[in-house]
Design a protein around this nucleic acid. Structure first.
Lengths: 219, 219
DNA sequence: GTACAAGAAATTGTTGACAATCTTGAATGT
DNA sequence: ACATTCAAGATTGTCAACAATTTCTTGTAC
């Protein structure tokens, strides 16, 4: 065991450890149900056990780690049912953000989103999945950003971390872009047209269709 | 300083401390912006500083406590703007729950809600604010319960803790029951009628009106 | 009188050691 | 061979001491 990529000089602080461990979990370096033995992690990351322990406690509250009394911590395994629930909550929250974004969007921001719409159409036409996936992420992030809803943004971000594994598979689904592109364009249109109700509806429909796909992967 | 109400024999565990401190904060024993000095809390609750520290870390992630590097912890002061945001997020999430509840509700549960509707009308007629307030809480709790949405429920619960101070004042607002009673009845009707869209809409309208009231208290 | 600087006090951050608990596996009896 | 008991090892939970940082106080120069 050796220190992985960190600044090897001093030992890591709790906040740093939280970031490092969170990245390791959402990035898949630590797989679901993997045991997280405090002493081992301490040796691996060159930190004291106390700090590792504190970091695990924080990640537990965030929902990425599961702990049972006297039996230690594991990477929380999110079931399909939970992933569906999480996506449905995201649907509700991002619909709220889309609504607020439609109320607040400026002309410059609208132009930016229209440009993004063009890039997305282009990517689908060319069959460029990576570019489309990137635009997808940018779109959701920009809508949340424009909405200026701190509370909703923080909640969405936390939930996304828990279900990122499922989101990941989804992008590779064949024929998926053909379904989601018109949904994305509808969101952009409604937000740019300052139509809050339509924007919220379009976003909700989009993410509920994502939830349906996740649901269908299990059956 | 002495131990407050706890079992004085052994010292408190981290999980117990989290509960005790959370209750103290949402209950108002620890007021917003109050400094939370680890050593003082340790003495007050008869716990070790390490455990107090761990508990404060958890409550920070929950959003009840604010910490800055090397400067300690305070009870987080939720601004009016934040309280409005929190209520808007709750509106989106409880609307989701109302939608799901309308899909899943059984005949027995519907009868129970109808009975609750009667109690609420009765309480408003008699001018019994305490009873009405209690029914209000029960209604929201039951809808969330019937929806069986764990993720949404947990998120709502956390957010409620942060904004409970504002919710509290609201109930005392004169003329408030006259406005909220029809909204509550509309929610119950839609959920019992298995009408998901109407239920979600009624719940959203209700909680957005709550957000408006909170907004207006600041201006 | 005010601004600045240095030291003291208070407070937080970190660590290693010890205690409590759970798990594993061998020994024993049936 | 199988179940039970019990001891050894592994792991987590708790604590008190030490280090680092911030804040407060005091003294001094201008």
């Amino acid at each position: 065991m050796e220190t992985l990529g960190g600044i090897t000089g001093r030992s890591l602080t709790v906040a740093e450890l939280v970031d490092v461990l969170r990245s390791a979990i959402v990035g898949g370096d630590l797989v679901p149900n993997q045991r997280l033995v405090e002493a081992d992690l301490a040796a691996e990351y060159g930190a004291s056990r106390g700090n590792i322990r504190a970091a695990l406690a924080e990640l537990t509250v965030e929902g990425l780690v599961e702990r049972v009394q006297n039996r230690g911590a594991r990477v929380r395994a999110v079931s399909v049912e939970e992933a569906v629930e999480i996506t449905e909550v995201r649907a509700a929250l991002e619909a709220l953000c889309a609504r607020k974004a439609a109320e607040r969007i400026t002309a410059d921001e609208a132009a930016e989103l229209q440009k993004l719409a063009g890039r997305m159409k282009d990517a689908v036409e060319r069959g460029d999945r990576d570019s489309y996936s990137e635009c997808n992420q940018i779109l959701h992030a920009r809508v949340i950003d424009i909405s200026a809803q701190q509370t909703a943004a923080a909640t969405i971000h936390r939930l996304r971390g828990q279900a990122v594994r499922f989101q990941f598979r989804l992008a590779r689904q064949p024929g998926r872009p053909a379904v989601s592109l018109p949904q994305h364009l509808a969101i952009i249109d409604a937000v740019c047209a300052h139509n809050p109700d339509a924007a919220a509806h379009a976003m909700r429909v989009h993410l509920e269709s994502v939830a349906d796909v996740i649901r269908s992967t299990h059956t």
